[in-house]
Design a protein around this nucleic acid. Sequence first.
DNA 1: ATCACATTGTGAAACCTATCACAGCTTAAC
DNA 2: GTTAAGCTGTGATAGGTTTCACAATGTGAT
Lengths: 223, 223
Amino acid sequence: MVRKKSSASQHDVSERTISRLLLYRKRLSGAPEDVKRFIYSYELGAMCGVTSAQVRRDLMLVGCSGSPNRGYDRRELLGSIEDFLYRPGVQNAALVGLGNLGRAILSFLAGRHSRLAIVATFDIDPAKTNCVTFGCRCYPVADLRTVAAAAGIEVAILTVPAASAQETAGLLVAAGMRGILNFAPVTLHLPDHVFVEDIDLAMSLEKVAFFARRGQQMERKHA
Amino acid sequence: MVRKKSSASQHDVSERTISRLLLYRKRLSGAPEDVKRFIYSYELGAMCGVTSAQVRRDLMLVGCSGSPNRGYDRRELLGSIEDFLYRPGVQNAALVGLGNLGRAILSFLAGRHSRLAIVATFDIDPAKTNCVTFGCRCYPVADLRTVAAAAGIEVAILTVPAASAQETAGLLVAAGMRGILNFAPVTLHLPDHVFVEDIDLAMSLEKVAFFARRGQQMERKHA
DNA sequence: ATCACATTGTGAAACCTATCACAGCTTAAC
DNA sequence: GTTAAGCTGTGATAGGTTTCACAATGTGAT
């Protein structure tokens, strides 16, 4: 029943779609597994705050299955989504900047992911380096290139102060990073091949405040 | 020179547009003020990772000025954007859940904003309540309603564990919140009039990892 | 077997967002 | 005063995303 189809080779897939697929995956894997073997598009949609049509449209991309009157086999669906989202094996990430926010994020993400793990942290402060926090050794920033190369790290979380963000980001790219999750409230200027996702806490809060004033939820969009 | 026009009363403005306006505001106010009195749309665009046409289009909304051959008066522009984004006076926010992440976010946001301030925190753990962290008193969650009413709080940051997020969110709404910045990795189900912005750190990182694998930055979008 | 039903998969339509491109200005230079 | 230059403001356009709506389909009841 598993139509392999073209499996829409992941090029030209929008960020929005990927975010939703990640959400579907999380909700599917987070549920009490086999309470029900099948799930309808509208059920998955309700779990994620998305319409059933949107769910079906997204699932077309991953080379789906799904039968009328029964819906999708949860395990099979989860497998298809993960095949689409992840490459075989584990992908490693680094966290750069062990301040308050960096440590909190590390505590949040450390030792959780099978497919994506934070394996090293970096800081300039010699007082912080060579310690182990939440299971991750902290290296001096100067060692970025060698450690990243040795561990095959291509993704980094950037939690350094705004003043040093651009400079540190440059070092990250020089060390071979291809994706950066940036918490510093600055616009990074980097080569095109590096994917940057900005999370600016202050701006997010102000956005909430703006829309809170004029009621009406308009949309639901996981960042 | 300040055309007042209709000033496009802030209804029906998209989330994206608001995010960009917040970004323009931040870049304008963060710069060394009067190094130059005027700024062109393409300059502001470059500072924010946005095209000049997009900048001009966005500025149409705020009831803009701007002269050919000189660009926009920075101070005046900043004023127009702030008039559009903020209501007069200060808006208060609360932070609920003083775990690692909550404390880090508090340290990040406390004592910064003129227009939007975190004025109270809440937790269920009696060991944490009635202390002052980063200048904010921590109240028991049971006092949500009274404290929120007294301080006029309508916006909250939710950093409680996933397991209690939905329940706590319900309490927030009951306490009069109209906007929630949700860090718990769950889809909250709340009345339509409550605006929810989700930030899921694990999913954001996985998104970066996905696009890092297939190169090519596609877009730049502040969250 | 056959039927009635609820769902899938998807072309088409609607909607939303960003870009193009240019008329109209405003300024500076001569 | 006239001209050249380069930007703003915006209608039109292109592009992207979501929703609609329905034929096709598998399932369970009769």
